[in-house]
Design a protein around this nucleic acid. Structure first.
Lengths: 348, 348
DNA sequence: ATCTTCGTTGCACTCGTGTGCAAGCGTGCA
DNA sequence: TGCACGCTTGCACACGAGTGCAACGAAGAT
């Protein structure tokens, strides 16, 4: 029962006081080398590990970060979670995972997060209600949103540079000679979706394209497949479709090919957003704007920990640029594509 | 600063002792209705939430379950994690997530799991070293392995019924008239891989097939693609390939089609294991043995919580059956396929 | 030899909550 | 009316560790 060893046991065996044991495990505390040796030895012999729970109680910091995720079908979120767990572990923090129910009653999570004294909270979902973020912020818990922004002040956020990303998609499709455009939307209320749609339409409008078809895919594959059926059976079928994320783009492609018998990109070009793993699978070879998971995690972790550890008090709003990775799901323009590190990238 | 409200504040406002506050939030404690009302009112007014950390300290139970995952590329694991988080939340537990490094030095996690006083631990990976499981078990922490078994006693495990699953694959491929078989292996040391391979070979041997080609895919897509290149460029190319999981089967199919120009299933039949989301995507339509996430999570959670809460002391070894879902990545036998709940299932 | 100084140590209090124990109170029965 | 019983309640201790404070000892300075 190694789990039941306390500092009292170690102190007794080492012949010192309990304070000495505590100081031995507290970096920077005043302790004689000889005492440290005795304590370390006794601790090892007994298999002693300081109880993080008790430490949290007195320190007022749990070194736990609550992470709330919505759904995991979109490979972007598992990747994010994986990186996040490693990054936080490396920095001495741990990750308390909460799954928000799809209906968005994530408010029920607030008391639980509070109860566990999480030092910070990361909301990783484009669709979570921002009420949770505001509540936590009001309670004094630093919050970082990933893949979403909010109007509430004091809340940090890390997103892709959706505006420039969506503009690049518009430029890329225009350069490819497309004429009839469509947008398959994610959840309309999500800021990420709004930014992508507005920037895409805006750039097209600058180029004189006023009409952009629109279908709501609700960030789901069923929604995207349905959108494909509706868009691609129109008489004035679009020849270029921008899906709000890869997860939907893949379902869109599958529906176009297998349900409607169309060829990609000959009959219709498809572009996604995220550049997740499956986008690279040869069956899709999806042209997509990358959302750099590593960079986003680094920034999110730093923003959160800087606030938790008091190095900074202001909220940080970060927009991370990502390349438009060109593969073969969309007609390629004659110029503007460069190969960088083995990837074809749109650089007009 | 709603987070700084303690039971002392609530007691003062309600005009009762701190004990009364505690009892108000302890199910089954002796407390008068009127007192409860006063406490509840004061608590609500102050935004009081019992501190789970302090509660854990005194109760000796943290109501946290450590979950260790290996990698998240294989969609099975995100799905598992998602279900697990919801199930544990529903039962009043929370999930402390640990990402094990791919090299398998997951032993560094042991002290951390111990320090946080996790009530139990779930190891969700086919490839994690069982040393961690044995250490936790020795420390008196209930352990459940998912997707892996171990020889160590006292450790519960939940796996698919790999033996019957792999046998079904062999039967299915034999019924489809295939002659030359190959197996793309996962990590050789994983019990899941061993079970699947042995059962597959065993069943084929019973049918008089002694030779089964083998390539190691190491549970990675790169490995599977390489395996495809090696197997499918042989003079005696196999006409039926069983991949140890869907994640590899998908990469195998992509390599076969796009790198080698083969048709599936005309030139080669492919069968996977797990029946993850992408297996259903029309581009793959992968025939695969299902690994029922919901059932596995239910069993794992019950097995763990029954031990934690003292209802049971023995370890439980569960093998969950899963159907062989027939799609079009493998030649279909003339008979033996039934449609159940909209799925084509192999039922010889 | 005496005083000062600095590093080290232990005492005791603290974090926020659960709970055994005994006292308090009200009620029902004889 | 008196007694016993049961439900409530508060006191006090416990959980396991961090830390300010004062005392202690050794070493250096005068």
């Amino acid at each position: 029962m190694a789990g039941r060893v306390t500092s009292v046991d170690v102190a007794a065996r080492a012949g010192v006081s309990r304070s000495a044991v505590s100081r031995c495990f507290t970096p920077g505390a005043s302790i004689a080398p000889e005492t440290r040796r005795k304590v370390t030895e006794a601790a090892k012999a007994l298999g002693y590990r300081p109880n993080a729970i008790a430490r949290s109680l007195i320190a007022g910091r749990s070194r736990m970060i609550a992470v709330v995720v919505g759904y995991m079908q979109n490979q972007f979120y598992p990747d994010l979670l994986d990186r996040l767990a490693r990054e936080l572990q490396a920095r001495g923090y741990h990750l308390l995972l909460f799954a928000a129910s799809p209906e968005g009653d994530s408010d029920a999570l607030f008391p639980q997060i509070l109860a566990y004294q999480a030092d910070g909270i990361i909301l990783a979902s484009a669709t979570l209600s921002s009420a949770l973020a505001d509540e936590c912020n009001a309670a004094g818990i630093p919050v970082v949103l990933i893949n979403r922004t909010t109007d509430g002040t004091g809340v940090s956020s890390v997103t892709a540079d959706n505006v420039n990303g969506a503009r690049a998609v518009a430029d890329f499709l225009l350069a490819g000679g497309h004429r009839r455009f469509a947008y398959v939307a994610g959840t309309a209320a999500s800021s990420t979706n709004q930014d992508r749609e507005a920037a895409f339409r805006g750039r097209l409008a600058e180029a004189g394209i006023g009409e952009v078809l629109r279908e709501d895919g609700g960030y789901s594959q069923e929604g995207a497949a349905e959108a494909a059926r509706r868009l691609l059976t129109r008489r004035d079928r679009p020849d270029a479709v921008f899906c709000a994320n890869d997860h939907m783009a893949i379902a869109f492609m599958d529906a176009a090919r297998h349900a409607l018998g169309l060829r990609i990109p000959q009959d219709v070009s498809v572009v996604g957003y995220d550049d997740v793993g499956p986008a690279r699978w040869p069956s899709y070879a999806l042209t997509s704007v990358e959302q750099p998971v590593e960079a986003m995690v680094d920034i999110a972790a730093s923003a959160l920990l800087d606030r938790i550890e008091g190095r900074e008090t202001a909220a940080r709003i970060a927009r991370v640029p990502g390349a438009l990775v060109v593969r073969s799901s969309a007609r390629r323009p004659a110029a503007g594509i460069m190969t960088i590190d083995g990837r074809d990238v749109w650089t007009p």
